[in-house]
């Protein structure tokens, strides 16, 4: 269950403000794509257009096409709720539901839309999702405790387990490690490497070493100045971006000369 995303001529707006201009990009199935770039360059904004979370903000809108294996997410009659159930998301700060137990957190997405699930199926799904998120051994004895009692790194893996429990086609990660310590970061990076066997993974990161470690391809976004729209500058194999970039600004950024 892994799908390709083709984005063509995508413009992203907040009200009248053009935040990201004219993105054309193809994200391969069963691979990890990293978005890098300086703060405010629109990489997170662009990521949120891939599962229609962008429009949650009042006034936010999009022009252009995002095709998930050929189906446009933005055609008329497409329900954003369905889109989001097929394209999972992990946020910058771990956000398990504080009022739910660990088990209920994993099942939160599965129980949506009044779907019923038998207890044995639920148990199996909780175990498999938490195992896929490398969290099962740490929490199997306290599944009924609140998810907010876990450490930050564990909470983030719980959020990943929650996202993969609904078996999405794509998993979007918005700086998933920026609030975590190095050990937890390593655990998440290992997990990303395992996830790409089954899912299309897109990750926004500020950490260039992280992009180099986990991704197959890397997209570099940049912004000409404050108030100007962000743009996709270069998109290529990760090794190319870091060793032999085609654009001067990419080279400046990855070599640490700015940003």
């Amino acid at each position: 269950m892994s799908k390709r995303i083709d984005v063509s001529d995508l413009h992203v707006y907040y009200g009248d403000f053009l935040a990201v201009e004219d993105v054309n990009i193809t994200l391969d199935a069963k691979s990890v794509t990293a978005f890098i770039g300086p703060s405010g360059c629109g990489k997170s904004t662009f990521l949120r257009t891939l599962n229609r979370m962008h429009e949650v903000i009042p006034g936010a809108r999009v022009e252009g096409k995002v095709l998930l294996d050929g189906d446009n997410l933005y055609s008329d009659g497409v329900d954003p709720v369905t889109v989001r159930s097929q394209i999972g998301m992990v946020f910058q700060r771990p956000n398990p539901f504080p009022t739910m137990s660990i088990r209920d957190n994993v099942l939160a997405g599965v129980k949506l839309n009044s779907r019923r699930i038998s207890k044995s199926d639920a148990d199996a799904l909780v175990e498999s999702s938490l195992s896929s998120a490398n969290l099962w051994n740490e929490v199997k004895d306290r599944l009924d405790k609140p998810g907010s009692g876990l450490s930050g790194g564990q909470q983030q893996r719980l959020c990943i387990a929650r996202a993969i429990a609904v078996s999405p086609d794509v998993i979007l990660m918005d700086e998933p490690c920026s609030a975590l310590d190095p050990i937890s970061t390593l655990a998440i990076e290992d997990l990303i490497n395992e996830l790409k066997d089954q899912y299309t993974v897109v990750i926004v990161t500020h950490n260039m070493q992280q992009a180099a470690r986990v991704s197959d391809k890397t997209a570099f976004f940049n912004i000409a100045g404050t108030g100007k729209p962000g743009k996709l500058i270069e998109f290529a194999e990760t090794a190319t971006i870091f060793n032999n970039p085609g654009e001067k600004s990419t080279e400046d950024y990855v070599s640490g000369r700015f940003g």
Partner: peptide, 23 residues
């Protein structure tokens, strides 16, 4: 944070309210 978590899982607005606002 939690409202977005619910929406990103594919919750409708009412489900989001039940998961992240009412509790």
């Amino acid at each position: 944070l939690h409202q977005e978590a619910a929406l990103a899982l594919g919750a409708t607005r009412w489900e989001m309210i039940r998961m992240a606002v009412l509790p």
